[in-house]
Design a protein around this nucleic acid. Structure first.
Lengths: 250, 250
DNA sequence: TTTTTATTGTGTTATTTTTACACGATTGCT
DNA sequence: AGCAATCGTGTAAAAATAACACAATAAAAA
Protein backbone atom coordinates (compact mmCIF):
# COMPACT_ATOMS: atom_id res chain seq x y z
CA UNK A 1 0.00 0.00 0.00
CA UNK A 2 2.39 2.55 1.27
CA UNK A 3 5.08 1.58 -1.17
CA UNK A 4 2.62 1.75 -4.01
CA UNK A 5 1.74 5.31 -3.11
CA UNK A 6 5.36 6.26 -2.95
CA UNK A 7 5.99 4.77 -6.31
CA UNK A 8 3.21 6.86 -7.77
CA UNK A 9 4.68 9.97 -6.25
CA UNK A 10 8.29 9.45 -7.11
CA UNK A 11 7.99 7.93 -10.57
CA UNK A 12 4.95 9.68 -11.95
CA UNK A 13 5.82 8.84 -15.53
CA UNK A 14 4.56 5.37 -14.91
CA UNK A 15 0.82 5.22 -14.82
CA UNK A 16 -0.12 4.33 -11.25
CA UNK A 17 -2.10 1.19 -10.69
CA UNK A 18 -4.77 3.23 -8.97
CA UNK A 19 -5.54 6.47 -7.25
CA UNK A 20 -3.87 7.47 -4.04
CA UNK A 21 -6.31 7.24 -1.18
CA UNK A 22 -4.41 8.89 1.61
CA UNK A 23 -3.08 12.33 0.88
CA UNK A 24 -1.67 12.42 4.40
CA UNK A 25 0.51 9.39 3.82
CA UNK A 26 1.67 10.82 0.54
CA UNK A 27 2.73 14.05 2.15
CA UNK A 28 4.34 12.16 5.00
CA UNK A 29 6.65 10.57 2.46
CA UNK A 30 7.96 13.91 1.19
CA UNK A 31 11.32 15.25 2.32
CA UNK A 32 11.05 18.25 4.60
CA UNK A 33 13.02 21.43 4.56
CA UNK A 34 13.42 24.32 6.99
CA UNK A 35 11.90 27.53 5.67
CA UNK A 36 12.61 31.08 6.68
CA UNK A 37 11.28 34.42 5.57
CA UNK A 38 13.60 37.38 5.12
CA UNK A 39 12.27 40.92 4.99
CA UNK A 40 13.97 43.53 2.90
CA UNK A 41 12.69 46.61 4.67
CA UNK A 42 13.23 49.77 2.70
CA UNK A 43 13.02 53.26 4.09
CA UNK A 44 13.82 56.72 2.78
CA UNK A 45 15.73 59.36 4.64
CA UNK A 46 17.99 62.25 3.72
CA UNK A 47 17.29 61.62 0.06
CA UNK A 48 18.67 58.15 0.20
CA UNK A 49 17.07 54.77 -0.03
CA UNK A 50 17.84 52.79 3.11
CA UNK A 51 17.39 49.24 4.20
CA UNK A 52 16.98 48.01 7.75
CA UNK A 53 19.55 45.40 8.77
CA UNK A 54 20.45 43.55 11.92
CA UNK A 55 23.78 42.18 13.02
CA UNK A 56 24.02 38.48 12.44
CA UNK A 57 23.92 36.42 15.60
CA UNK A 58 25.90 33.61 14.05
CA UNK A 59 29.50 33.29 15.09
CA UNK A 60 30.50 32.47 11.53
CA UNK A 61 29.10 35.78 10.33
CA UNK A 62 30.45 37.82 13.25
CA UNK A 63 30.14 41.52 12.51
CA UNK A 64 28.23 41.04 9.26
CA UNK A 65 24.79 42.44 8.66
CA UNK A 66 21.77 40.44 7.65
CA UNK A 67 18.16 40.89 6.66
CA UNK A 68 15.45 40.58 9.25
CA UNK A 69 14.27 37.03 9.14
CA UNK A 70 12.94 34.15 11.09
CA UNK A 71 11.80 30.62 10.43
CA UNK A 72 8.24 29.99 9.40
CA UNK A 73 6.24 28.32 12.11
CA UNK A 74 4.31 25.13 11.59
CA UNK A 75 1.23 25.88 9.58
CA UNK A 76 2.03 29.56 9.33
CA UNK A 77 1.36 31.15 5.97
CA UNK A 78 4.51 32.83 4.73
CA UNK A 79 2.88 36.22 4.34
CA UNK A 80 1.89 36.00 7.98
CA UNK A 81 5.40 35.03 8.97
CA UNK A 82 6.77 38.05 7.14
CA UNK A 83 4.28 40.36 8.85
CA UNK A 84 5.21 38.80 12.14
CA UNK A 85 8.92 39.42 11.60
CA UNK A 86 8.19 42.97 10.59
CA UNK A 87 6.05 43.55 13.63
CA UNK A 88 8.51 41.94 16.02
CA UNK A 89 11.35 44.09 14.74
CA UNK A 90 9.70 47.40 14.03
CA UNK A 91 6.49 47.29 16.01
CA UNK A 92 4.65 48.26 12.86
CA UNK A 93 1.59 46.64 11.41
CA UNK A 94 -0.30 47.77 8.35
CA UNK A 95 2.76 48.31 6.24
CA UNK A 96 3.34 47.51 2.64
CA UNK A 97 4.66 43.99 2.20
CA UNK A 98 4.94 41.77 -0.84
CA UNK A 99 6.57 38.48 -1.68
CA UNK A 100 9.54 38.83 -3.99
CA UNK A 101 11.13 35.46 -4.57
CA UNK A 102 12.27 32.21 -3.02
CA UNK A 103 15.98 31.45 -2.71
CA UNK A 104 17.04 27.86 -2.54
CA UNK A 105 20.73 27.35 -3.20
CA UNK A 106 21.63 24.27 -1.17
CA UNK A 107 24.59 25.96 0.51
CA UNK A 108 23.10 29.36 1.14
CA UNK A 109 22.96 28.68 4.88
CA UNK A 110 26.02 27.38 6.77
CA UNK A 111 23.82 25.24 9.00
CA UNK A 112 22.49 23.14 6.17
CA UNK A 113 19.77 23.47 3.64
CA UNK A 114 17.34 26.26 4.40
CA UNK A 115 14.96 27.80 1.91
CA UNK A 116 14.12 31.43 2.34
CA UNK A 117 11.31 33.46 0.92
CA UNK A 118 12.16 37.12 0.47
CA UNK A 119 9.61 39.80 1.18
CA UNK A 120 9.90 43.45 0.31
CA UNK A 121 8.56 45.98 2.74
CA UNK A 122 8.39 49.75 2.57
CA UNK A 123 8.03 51.87 5.61
CA UNK A 124 8.12 55.47 6.61
CA UNK A 125 11.30 56.00 8.58
CA UNK A 126 9.76 58.87 10.56
CA UNK A 127 7.39 56.41 12.15
CA UNK A 128 10.19 54.08 13.09
CA UNK A 129 12.94 55.93 14.82
CA UNK A 130 15.20 53.26 16.25
CA UNK A 131 15.13 53.03 20.02
CA UNK A 132 18.15 52.46 22.21
CA UNK A 133 17.17 48.85 22.57
CA UNK A 134 17.75 48.39 18.88
CA UNK A 135 21.48 48.82 18.91
CA UNK A 136 21.89 45.79 16.72
CA UNK A 137 19.48 47.25 14.17
CA UNK A 138 20.62 49.84 11.68
CA UNK A 139 19.42 51.68 8.60
CA UNK A 140 21.98 51.28 5.83
CA UNK A 141 22.21 53.25 2.63
CA UNK A 142 21.40 50.72 -0.05
CA UNK A 143 24.04 51.94 -2.45
CA UNK A 144 26.85 51.58 0.07
CA UNK A 145 26.27 48.03 1.16
CA UNK A 146 29.14 45.83 0.14
CA UNK A 147 28.82 42.57 1.94
CA UNK A 148 26.29 40.75 4.06
CA UNK A 149 25.75 37.49 5.91
CA UNK A 150 24.40 34.42 4.06
CA UNK A 151 23.31 35.23 0.51
CA UNK A 152 21.57 38.32 1.79
CA UNK A 153 23.43 40.69 -0.49
CA UNK A 154 22.08 38.76 -3.44
CA UNK A 155 18.59 38.83 -1.96
CA UNK A 156 18.85 42.55 -1.28
CA UNK A 157 20.08 43.30 -4.79
CA UNK A 158 17.30 41.22 -6.27
CA UNK A 159 14.72 42.96 -4.13
CA UNK A 160 16.03 46.40 -4.96
CA UNK A 161 15.80 45.55 -8.60
CA UNK A 162 12.32 44.20 -8.08
CA UNK A 163 11.37 47.44 -6.34
CA UNK A 164 12.64 49.55 -9.22
CA UNK A 165 10.32 47.69 -11.55
CA UNK A 166 7.41 47.49 -9.19
CA UNK A 167 7.36 51.19 -8.47
CA UNK A 168 6.82 51.86 -12.14
CA UNK A 169 3.57 50.00 -12.19
CA UNK A 170 2.28 50.62 -8.71
CA UNK A 171 2.60 53.82 -6.67
CA UNK A 172 4.33 52.22 -3.73
CA UNK A 173 6.59 55.11 -3.03
CA UNK A 174 4.06 56.88 -0.89
CA UNK A 175 4.58 54.27 1.79
CA UNK A 176 8.07 55.61 2.29
CA UNK A 177 7.05 59.23 2.80
CA UNK A 178 5.35 61.04 5.64
CA UNK A 179 1.61 61.48 5.26
CA UNK A 180 2.11 64.99 3.89
CA UNK A 181 4.96 65.60 1.53
CA UNK A 182 6.20 68.12 -0.98
CA UNK A 183 6.70 67.34 -4.61
CA UNK A 184 10.42 67.75 -4.12
CA UNK A 185 10.40 64.97 -1.55
CA UNK A 186 8.41 62.80 -3.89
CA UNK A 187 10.77 63.45 -6.75
CA UNK A 188 13.83 62.83 -4.59
CA UNK A 189 12.33 59.50 -3.64
CA UNK A 190 11.78 58.43 -7.22
CA UNK A 191 15.23 59.60 -8.17
CA UNK A 192 16.77 57.65 -5.31
CA UNK A 193 14.92 54.45 -6.07
CA UNK A 194 15.36 54.55 -9.81
CA UNK A 195 18.81 56.06 -9.59
CA UNK A 196 18.13 58.64 -12.28
CA UNK A 197 17.74 62.42 -12.56
CA UNK A 198 14.31 63.60 -13.58
CA UNK A 199 13.14 66.90 -14.98
CA UNK A 200 11.27 68.79 -12.30
CA UNK A 201 8.62 70.31 -14.49
CA UNK A 202 7.87 67.10 -16.33
CA UNK A 203 7.77 65.17 -13.08
CA UNK A 204 5.17 67.53 -11.69
CA UNK A 205 3.13 67.48 -14.83
CA UNK A 206 3.16 63.70 -14.81
CA UNK A 207 2.01 63.37 -11.23
CA UNK A 208 -0.66 66.02 -11.49
CA UNK A 209 -2.03 64.39 -14.60
CA UNK A 210 -2.27 61.07 -12.74
CA UNK A 211 -4.58 62.88 -10.42
CA UNK A 212 -4.14 61.10 -7.18
CA UNK A 213 -2.46 63.84 -5.20
CA UNK A 214 -4.57 65.81 -2.76
CA UNK A 215 -3.49 69.40 -2.28
CA UNK A 216 -3.60 69.98 1.46
CA UNK A 217 -3.24 73.75 1.08
CA UNK A 218 -0.45 73.57 3.64
CA UNK A 219 3.22 74.37 3.16
CA UNK A 220 6.49 73.01 4.39
CA UNK A 221 7.71 74.82 7.51
CA UNK A 222 11.08 73.27 8.12
CA UNK A 223 13.09 74.23 5.07
CA UNK A 224 15.64 77.07 4.79
CA UNK A 225 14.15 78.37 1.56
CA UNK A 226 10.85 79.01 -0.09
CA UNK A 227 8.51 76.27 1.21
CA UNK A 228 6.64 73.99 -1.14
CA UNK A 229 3.06 72.90 -1.00
CA UNK A 230 2.24 69.70 0.86
CA UNK A 231 0.25 66.92 -0.72
CA UNK A 232 -1.32 63.68 0.38
CA UNK A 233 -1.78 60.52 -1.59
CA UNK A 234 -5.36 59.87 -2.56
CA UNK A 235 -5.63 56.17 -1.77
CA UNK A 236 -9.35 56.15 -2.39
CA UNK A 237 -9.13 57.60 -5.85
CA UNK A 238 -6.25 55.32 -6.69
CA UNK A 239 -8.21 52.25 -5.65
CA UNK A 240 -11.11 53.33 -7.81
CA UNK A 241 -9.02 53.96 -10.88
CA UNK A 242 -6.28 51.40 -10.59
CA UNK A 243 -7.80 49.15 -13.18
CA UNK A 244 -7.33 51.82 -15.79
CA UNK A 245 -3.89 52.77 -14.61
CA UNK A 246 -1.09 50.80 -16.15
CA UNK A 247 1.92 52.50 -14.70
CA UNK A 248 4.32 55.35 -14.71
CA UNK A 249 6.77 55.88 -17.51
CA UNK A 250 9.67 58.20 -17.20
CA UNK B 1 23.78 25.95 25.49
CA UNK B 2 21.21 24.58 23.15
CA UNK B 3 18.36 26.37 24.86
CA UNK B 4 20.30 29.60 24.71
CA UNK B 5 20.69 29.29 20.98
CA UNK B 6 17.04 28.61 20.54
CA UNK B 7 16.15 31.63 22.59
CA UNK B 8 18.28 33.78 20.34
CA UNK B 9 16.55 32.38 17.31
CA UNK B 10 12.99 32.55 18.48
CA UNK B 11 13.03 35.81 20.39
CA UNK B 12 15.50 37.88 18.44
CA UNK B 13 14.27 41.15 19.89
CA UNK B 14 16.21 40.36 23.02
CA UNK B 15 19.89 40.88 22.56
CA UNK B 16 21.45 37.45 22.75
CA UNK B 17 24.00 36.82 25.45
CA UNK B 18 26.49 35.80 22.79
CA UNK B 19 26.87 34.62 19.27
CA UNK B 20 25.55 31.31 18.09
CA UNK B 21 28.42 28.92 17.50
CA UNK B 22 26.68 26.06 15.75
CA UNK B 23 24.69 26.99 12.68
CA UNK B 24 23.83 23.31 12.29
CA UNK B 25 22.16 23.14 15.68
CA UNK B 26 20.28 26.31 14.94
CA UNK B 27 18.92 24.93 11.70
CA UNK B 28 18.13 21.64 13.38
CA UNK B 29 15.78 23.54 15.67
CA UNK B 30 13.72 24.94 12.80
CA UNK B 31 10.39 23.41 11.83
CA UNK B 32 10.48 21.58 8.52
CA UNK B 33 7.99 21.66 5.73
CA UNK B 34 7.46 19.55 2.61
CA UNK B 35 8.18 21.50 -0.57
CA UNK B 36 7.02 20.83 -4.07
CA UNK B 37 7.56 22.55 -7.37
CA UNK B 38 4.72 22.94 -9.84
CA UNK B 39 5.38 23.73 -13.47
CA UNK B 40 2.96 25.80 -15.45
CA UNK B 41 3.93 24.67 -18.92
CA UNK B 42 2.55 26.89 -21.62
CA UNK B 43 2.36 25.99 -25.27
CA UNK B 44 0.79 27.58 -28.33
CA UNK B 45 -1.26 25.76 -30.91
CA UNK B 46 -4.09 26.64 -33.27
CA UNK B 47 -3.84 30.24 -32.20
CA UNK B 48 -4.58 29.44 -28.61
CA UNK B 49 -2.46 29.52 -25.52
CA UNK B 50 -2.40 26.07 -23.95
CA UNK B 51 -1.19 24.64 -20.70
CA UNK B 52 -0.03 21.08 -20.10
CA UNK B 53 -1.91 19.32 -17.31
CA UNK B 54 -2.01 15.87 -15.85
CA UNK B 55 -4.83 14.03 -14.18
CA UNK B 56 -4.51 14.11 -10.44
CA UNK B 57 -3.55 10.80 -8.92
CA UNK B 58 -5.21 11.62 -5.63
CA UNK B 59 -8.51 9.93 -4.91
CA UNK B 60 -9.87 13.12 -3.43
CA UNK B 61 -9.30 14.95 -6.71
CA UNK B 62 -10.50 12.12 -8.93
CA UNK B 63 -10.97 13.36 -12.48
CA UNK B 64 -9.53 16.79 -11.80
CA UNK B 65 -6.51 18.14 -13.62
CA UNK B 66 -3.38 19.42 -11.96
CA UNK B 67 -0.10 21.07 -12.82
CA UNK B 68 2.98 18.97 -13.30
CA UNK B 69 4.74 18.86 -10.00
CA UNK B 70 6.85 16.82 -7.68
CA UNK B 71 8.44 17.23 -4.31
CA UNK B 72 11.88 18.78 -4.06
CA UNK B 73 14.54 16.29 -3.15
CA UNK B 74 16.90 16.77 -0.25
CA UNK B 75 19.46 19.35 -1.15
CA UNK B 76 18.00 19.91 -4.58
CA UNK B 77 17.85 23.48 -5.74
CA UNK B 78 14.31 24.34 -6.72
CA UNK B 79 15.25 25.41 -10.23
CA UNK B 80 16.79 22.01 -10.69
CA UNK B 81 13.71 20.32 -9.37
CA UNK B 82 11.57 22.23 -11.83
CA UNK B 83 13.83 21.27 -14.72
CA UNK B 84 13.71 17.70 -13.54
CA UNK B 85 9.91 17.66 -13.51
CA UNK B 86 9.85 19.21 -16.94
CA UNK B 87 12.28 16.68 -18.29
CA UNK B 88 10.52 13.72 -16.68
CA UNK B 89 7.19 14.73 -18.16
CA UNK B 90 8.10 16.12 -21.54
CA UNK B 91 11.56 14.76 -22.20
CA UNK B 92 12.69 18.26 -22.98
CA UNK B 93 15.73 20.01 -21.63
CA UNK B 94 16.92 23.46 -22.54
CA UNK B 95 13.52 25.03 -22.32
CA UNK B 96 12.56 28.37 -20.91
CA UNK B 97 11.83 28.13 -17.20
CA UNK B 98 11.49 30.79 -14.56
CA UNK B 99 10.34 30.93 -10.96
CA UNK B 100 7.04 32.71 -10.50
CA UNK B 101 5.99 32.61 -6.88
CA UNK B 102 5.68 30.50 -3.78
CA UNK B 103 2.25 29.46 -2.53
CA UNK B 104 1.87 28.67 1.11
CA UNK B 105 -1.72 28.60 2.28
CA UNK B 106 -1.76 26.09 5.13
CA UNK B 107 -4.66 24.14 3.68
CA UNK B 108 -3.74 24.19 0.05
CA UNK B 109 -2.91 20.47 0.12
CA UNK B 110 -5.36 17.93 1.58
CA UNK B 111 -2.49 15.89 2.99
CA UNK B 112 -1.26 18.63 5.27
CA UNK B 113 0.94 21.60 4.90
CA UNK B 114 2.92 21.64 1.69
CA UNK B 115 4.59 24.68 0.20
CA UNK B 116 4.83 24.85 -3.53
CA UNK B 117 7.00 26.97 -5.74
CA UNK B 118 5.46 27.70 -9.11
CA UNK B 119 7.59 27.76 -12.22
CA UNK B 120 6.54 29.01 -15.61
CA UNK B 121 7.77 27.18 -18.64
CA UNK B 122 7.24 27.83 -22.32
CA UNK B 123 7.67 25.19 -24.91
CA UNK B 124 7.12 24.64 -28.57
CA UNK B 125 4.24 22.23 -28.91
CA UNK B 126 5.54 20.93 -32.23
CA UNK B 127 8.50 19.46 -30.41
CA UNK B 128 6.31 17.77 -27.87
CA UNK B 129 3.54 15.85 -29.52
CA UNK B 130 2.04 13.73 -26.78
CA UNK B 131 2.72 10.03 -27.12
CA UNK B 132 0.24 7.26 -26.42
CA UNK B 133 1.91 6.68 -23.10
CA UNK B 134 0.86 10.11 -22.00
CA UNK B 135 -2.85 9.50 -21.90
CA UNK B 136 -3.05 11.19 -18.54
CA UNK B 137 -1.36 14.29 -19.95
CA UNK B 138 -3.29 16.84 -21.92
CA UNK B 139 -2.92 20.29 -23.44
CA UNK B 140 -5.75 22.50 -22.25
CA UNK B 141 -6.80 25.84 -23.65
CA UNK B 142 -5.97 28.29 -20.90
CA UNK B 143 -9.12 30.33 -21.32
CA UNK B 144 -11.41 27.35 -20.94
CA UNK B 145 -10.05 25.94 -17.72
CA UNK B 146 -12.63 26.17 -14.98
CA UNK B 147 -11.48 24.05 -12.13
CA UNK B 148 -8.38 22.20 -11.05
CA UNK B 149 -7.00 20.07 -8.23
CA UNK B 150 -5.43 21.71 -5.16
CA UNK B 151 -5.04 25.50 -5.59
CA UNK B 152 -3.70 24.91 -9.05
CA UNK B 153 -6.27 27.11 -10.73
CA UNK B 154 -5.06 30.00 -8.61
CA UNK B 155 -1.45 29.16 -9.43
CA UNK B 156 -2.25 28.91 -13.12
CA UNK B 157 -4.10 32.22 -13.14
CA UNK B 158 -1.27 33.90 -11.33
CA UNK B 159 1.26 32.45 -13.73
CA UNK B 160 -0.73 33.47 -16.77
CA UNK B 161 -0.90 36.97 -15.41
CA UNK B 162 2.79 36.88 -14.70
CA UNK B 163 3.42 35.75 -18.27
CA UNK B 164 1.40 38.60 -19.70
CA UNK B 165 3.60 41.07 -17.88
CA UNK B 166 6.82 39.23 -18.47
CA UNK B 167 6.35 38.98 -22.20
CA UNK B 168 6.20 42.75 -22.40
CA UNK B 169 9.70 43.13 -21.04
CA UNK B 170 11.36 40.02 -22.38
CA UNK B 171 10.80 38.37 -25.76
CA UNK B 172 9.82 35.00 -24.38
CA UNK B 173 7.22 34.29 -26.99
CA UNK B 174 9.74 32.85 -29.39
CA UNK B 175 10.07 29.81 -27.17
CA UNK B 176 6.51 28.90 -28.05
CA UNK B 177 6.96 29.01 -31.80
CA UNK B 178 8.75 26.77 -34.26
CA UNK B 179 12.24 27.83 -35.20
CA UNK B 180 10.97 29.56 -38.32
CA UNK B 181 7.73 31.43 -38.14
CA UNK B 182 5.73 34.00 -40.02
CA UNK B 183 4.82 37.36 -38.63
CA UNK B 184 1.22 36.30 -38.57
CA UNK B 185 2.07 33.44 -36.25
CA UNK B 186 4.04 35.79 -34.05
CA UNK B 187 1.20 38.26 -33.92
CA UNK B 188 -1.35 35.54 -33.19
CA UNK B 189 0.82 34.45 -30.32
CA UNK B 190 1.00 37.90 -28.80
CA UNK B 191 -2.70 38.39 -29.27
CA UNK B 192 -3.44 35.09 -27.58
CA UNK B 193 -1.20 35.74 -24.62
CA UNK B 194 -2.20 39.34 -24.09
CA UNK B 195 -5.81 38.72 -25.07
CA UNK B 196 -5.97 41.79 -27.29
CA UNK B 197 -6.30 42.61 -30.97
CA UNK B 198 -3.30 44.34 -32.48
CA UNK B 199 -2.92 46.32 -35.66
CA UNK B 200 -1.04 44.26 -38.19
CA UNK B 201 0.98 47.05 -39.73
CA UNK B 202 1.96 48.55 -36.41
CA UNK B 203 2.87 45.17 -35.05
CA UNK B 204 5.23 44.55 -37.96
CA UNK B 205 6.74 47.98 -37.71
CA UNK B 206 7.36 47.45 -34.01
CA UNK B 207 9.07 44.13 -34.42
CA UNK B 208 11.19 45.18 -37.36
CA UNK B 209 12.34 48.25 -35.47
CA UNK B 210 13.42 46.04 -32.56
CA UNK B 211 15.72 44.43 -35.04
CA UNK B 212 16.07 40.93 -33.75
CA UNK B 213 14.25 39.08 -36.46
CA UNK B 214 16.35 37.30 -39.08
CA UNK B 215 14.76 37.13 -42.50
CA UNK B 216 15.33 33.56 -43.68
CA UNK B 217 14.26 34.39 -47.22
CA UNK B 218 11.97 31.38 -47.07
CA UNK B 219 8.19 31.33 -47.23
CA UNK B 220 5.41 29.39 -45.64
CA UNK B 221 4.38 26.40 -47.73
CA UNK B 222 1.47 24.99 -45.81
CA UNK B 223 -1.10 27.74 -45.96
CA UNK B 224 -4.11 27.98 -48.27
CA UNK B 225 -3.36 31.56 -49.23
CA UNK B 226 -0.49 33.80 -50.10
CA UNK B 227 2.45 32.58 -48.01
CA UNK B 228 4.28 34.89 -45.66
CA UNK B 229 7.99 35.23 -45.14
CA UNK B 230 9.58 33.13 -42.44
CA UNK B 231 11.77 34.64 -39.75
CA UNK B 232 14.02 33.40 -37.00
CA UNK B 233 14.69 35.00 -33.68
CA UNK B 234 18.16 36.47 -33.42
CA UNK B 235 19.15 35.27 -29.96
CA UNK B 236 22.70 36.51 -30.37
CA UNK B 237 21.72 40.04 -31.24
CA UNK B 238 19.17 40.07 -28.47
CA UNK B 239 21.75 38.99 -25.91
CA UNK B 240 24.08 41.74 -27.05
CA UNK B 241 21.50 44.47 -26.91
CA UNK B 242 19.33 43.39 -24.06
CA UNK B 243 20.80 45.91 -21.70
CA UNK B 244 19.50 48.70 -23.84
CA UNK B 245 16.18 47.09 -24.46
CA UNK B 246 13.54 47.90 -21.89
CA UNK B 247 10.53 46.17 -23.32
CA UNK B 248 7.71 46.12 -25.75
CA UNK B 249 4.80 48.50 -25.51
CA UNK B 250 1.62 47.96 -27.39
C1' DT C 1 17.65 96.29 6.06
C1' DT C 2 19.72 94.63 2.24
C1' DT C 3 21.73 91.01 -0.19
C1' DT C 4 22.50 86.29 -1.03
C1' DT C 5 21.12 81.62 -1.52
C1' DA C 6 18.11 77.94 -2.43
C1' DT C 7 14.05 76.39 -4.07
C1' DT C 8 9.15 77.03 -5.69
C1' DG C 9 5.81 77.35 -9.35
C1' DT C 10 4.66 77.75 -14.01
C1' DG C 11 4.17 76.94 -20.30
C1' DT C 12 5.76 76.37 -24.71
C1' DT C 13 7.96 74.20 -28.39
C1' DA C 14 10.28 70.49 -30.80
C1' DT C 15 10.71 65.64 -31.07
C1' DT C 16 9.33 61.09 -30.74
C1' DT C 17 5.98 57.60 -30.34
C1' DT C 18 1.64 55.80 -31.07
C1' DT C 19 -2.46 55.14 -33.45
C1' DA C 20 -5.60 54.67 -37.25
C1' DC C 21 -6.36 53.36 -41.58
C1' DA C 22 -6.58 50.99 -47.38
C1' DC C 23 -5.15 48.81 -51.43
C1' DG C 24 -2.72 46.18 -54.93
C1' DA C 25 -0.17 41.67 -55.03
C1' DT C 26 0.12 36.77 -54.40
C1' DT C 27 -1.23 32.12 -53.67
C1' DG C 28 -4.40 28.13 -53.31
C1' DC C 29 -8.84 26.52 -54.07
C1' DT C 30 -13.02 25.71 -56.76
C1' DA D 1 -11.25 32.40 -64.59
C1' DG D 2 -12.73 33.99 -60.56
C1' DC D 3 -12.99 33.77 -55.40
C1' DA D 4 -11.15 33.78 -50.74
C1' DA D 5 -7.63 34.66 -47.76
C1' DT D 6 -3.67 36.79 -46.47
C1' DC D 7 0.70 39.38 -47.58
C1' DG D 8 3.28 43.51 -47.82
C1' DT D 9 3.55 48.31 -47.61
C1' DG D 10 3.19 54.14 -46.05
C1' DT D 11 1.20 58.27 -44.42
C1' DA D 12 -1.04 61.51 -41.62
C1' DA D 13 -3.14 62.83 -37.23
C1' DA D 14 -2.83 62.54 -32.31
C1' DA D 15 -0.59 61.82 -28.09
C1' DA D 16 3.32 61.52 -25.17
C1' DT D 17 7.76 62.90 -24.02
C1' DA D 18 11.77 65.84 -23.60
C1' DA D 19 14.09 70.01 -23.30
C1' DC D 20 14.33 74.26 -21.48
C1' DA D 21 14.11 79.66 -18.27
C1' DC D 22 12.57 83.01 -15.23
C1' DA D 23 10.06 85.59 -11.76
C1' DA D 24 8.49 84.84 -6.89
C1' DT D 25 9.33 83.57 -2.15
C1' DA D 26 11.39 82.55 2.26
C1' DA D 27 15.32 82.08 5.26
C1' DA D 28 19.94 83.06 6.27
C1' DA D 29 23.83 85.81 6.11
C1' DA D 30 25.97 90.10 5.74
Amino acid sequence: MMSNENAAATTPRTKPAGLIKSAEKLVASYPRVPITVDCVIFGFDENELKVLLIRSDLEIFRGKWSLLGDFADDNEELDDAAYRVLCERTGMTDVYLEQVRTFSKPNRHPGGRVLTVAYCSLLNIEQHKLGKMDNELHWHTVKNIKEMAFDHKEIMDYSYNWLQKRIMEHPLGFNLLPEKFSLRELQNLYEAILDVKLDRRNFRKKFFSMDFLIDTGEYEDDVPHRPGRLYQFNFEKYEQNKRRWTGIDF
